Simulated scan of single mutants.
Amino acid sequence: MGRYRLTARLGEGGMGTVYLGLSPGARQVAVKVVREELVSDPSFRRRFAREVDAARRVSGFHTAPVVDAGPEDTRPWLVTEYIPGPSLQQVLELHGPLPALTLRALALGVAEALEAIHACGIVHRDLKPGNILISSAGPRVIDFGIARGAEATALTRTDLVVGTRGFLAPEQLTGAPLTAAVDMYAFGMVLCHAGGSARFADGAALSGALRLLPSDLAAVTAACLGHDPVGRPSPTEVLRDLGGADGETPSDWLPPALRTLVDLHQASTMTAAPPRARPDRPGAP
Rank of each mutant, 00 (worst) to 15 (best):
G2C: 01
H95V: 00
A272H: 09
S215V: 14
R199N: 07
R125N: 08
S234C: 07
I134E: 14
A107C: 06
H265M: 01
L239V: 08
L6I: 05
V91W: 08
R232P: 07
R148G: 03
P275K: 00
A267L: 14
T153S: 15
L38A: 12
L191M: 13
S215R: 15
R46Y: 09
R276V: 10
V262E: 12
V141S: 05
R125A: 14
A245S: 14
G2P: 03
N131H: 12
L78N: 07
V34D: 06
P250M: 05
L92F: 11
T74P: 14
D183C: 12
S207C: 10
G231P: 08
L264D: 15
L20R: 08
V161K: 13
T156R: 15
P229N: 09
D280Q: 09
L20M: 07
Y19D: 04
A273R: 07
T80Q: 02
R140M: 08
F167Q: 03
A219G: 09
V230W: 10
R278F: 09
R35L: 13
A209I: 02
A267D: 06
Q28R: 13
A194W: 00
S23N: 04
R75K: 05
L114E: 01
V190A: 05
E72G: 15
T153V: 13
V190S: 05
G121D: 11
L206G: 10
